[in-house]
Design a protein around this nucleic acid. Structure first.
Lengths: 198, 198
DNA sequence: CCTACCGATCGGTAGG
DNA sequence: CCTACCGATCGGTAGG
């Protein structure tokens, strides 16, 4: 019965495991996240997980591939409005700041990927990122942007957000307002000034 | 005997623990680094460690305070030569690239600090960084640099290196040369173009 | 013979 | 600084 439902029970359980693992990884990190916590969060026993994943590492692979921070950050940035490049980049920056402020933990996935896996899952993820950023790069090229390799433009553009957020974590607690006030605006401002033809 | 030796045995042991812990943290991360591994590396038993540190977290504090990546990166960058700002920043960038390439693991301390401690040790560390960067900032101000808050200039300057390295880990394995060739040069180039008066 | 999951337990290790 | 342990928990697997 209910043959029209194409999601099998197995797929639903697998999804529940990924959801649970995402929450536990983001809160605890990689090694401190136990299979038991993931199982409990998914509403099942530890043993059951192994019908869907060979182990913890395979679970993390599934999590990073479906929940990498870029999945939330990139659509936000790309959806930003703005007549010219300047307005667009500043709006994109502001949108990202708001998202990161409301959701400070999910970037932990990125740190786990760097620390524990040296970014090895990025090969696959890049296949998804590049086509999305391509139209933006073409828009950049058509405007008064300096002649820079498109790939580098993309890398530095993404790097701006990473630089902002890591320095925010690092310097945000130092207690010097001049280090944090309007920080993203300065990052995007310097990026734009550095990228636009004079 | 040997009263002229001002390093007590306790201090030497403490140092051996910090050295050992640094090596184990960098290789394994925080939770996967066990007290027994640290003890073995330091040439002692687990119990002995607790005569010098209250626990694992206190060891990490000592490690991050004496071995934070900036301890090696910043002197290198500050020692770079160059008649003008452009040459200096590019040389500094190149020196950092070489150091990071030869020593890719020690940045893991930074990831642990972000992931496990949300950058809480940076309050102390900043007290050490700021006086070192100050003369550089003043040199920047005296040249043809745009009017930007010195603190922001410092933050973005440091952010450039962070952005370079994290995108290097992320995109370095993707296998597209245009993403990696001369990458740091483009980062510093865009930073300089974005910071210098036109 | 399958998918999905159970309670119980394996050999080892965690911080203290 | 060590040996000898503790309560608990680790990732993973057994038979059913």
């Amino acid at each position: 019965m209910s043959e029209e439902n194409e999601i099998t029970k197995g797929e639903r359980t697998r999804q529940a495991i990924v959801d649970a693992a995402y929450a536990v990884f983001v809160e605890k990190g990689y090694h401190a996240a136990s299979m038991r916590q993931i199982a409990k969060q998914a509403g099942m026993a530890v043993g059951g997980i192994y019908n869907h994943f060979a182990g913890k590492e395979e679970i993390f692979s599934a999590v990073i591939q479906t929940r990498h921070p870029y999945k939330r950050i990139l659509p936000l940035a790309l959806a930003a409005e703005g007549e010219d490049i300047q307005t667009f980049v500043h709006n994109a920056g502001q949108a990202v700041v708001v998202e990161l402020h409301d959701n400070p933990d999910f970037v932990n996935l990125l740190f786990i990927e760097m620390l524990e896996f040296q970014g090895k899952h990025m090969v696959d993820i890049f296949q998804d990122i590049y086509p999305q950023v391509l139209p933006l790069l073409q828009r950049f090229q058509s405007d008064n942007v300096r002649e820079l390799p498109p790939m580098m433009l993309m890398r530095v553009f993404i790097g701006i957000f990473i630089a902002y957020y890591l320095t925010e974590i690092s310097f945000g607690g130092v207690g010097i307002p001049a280090l944090t006030e309007d920080a993203m605006r300065y990052f995007t401002d310097i990026f734009l000034y550095g990228v636009l033809e004079r």
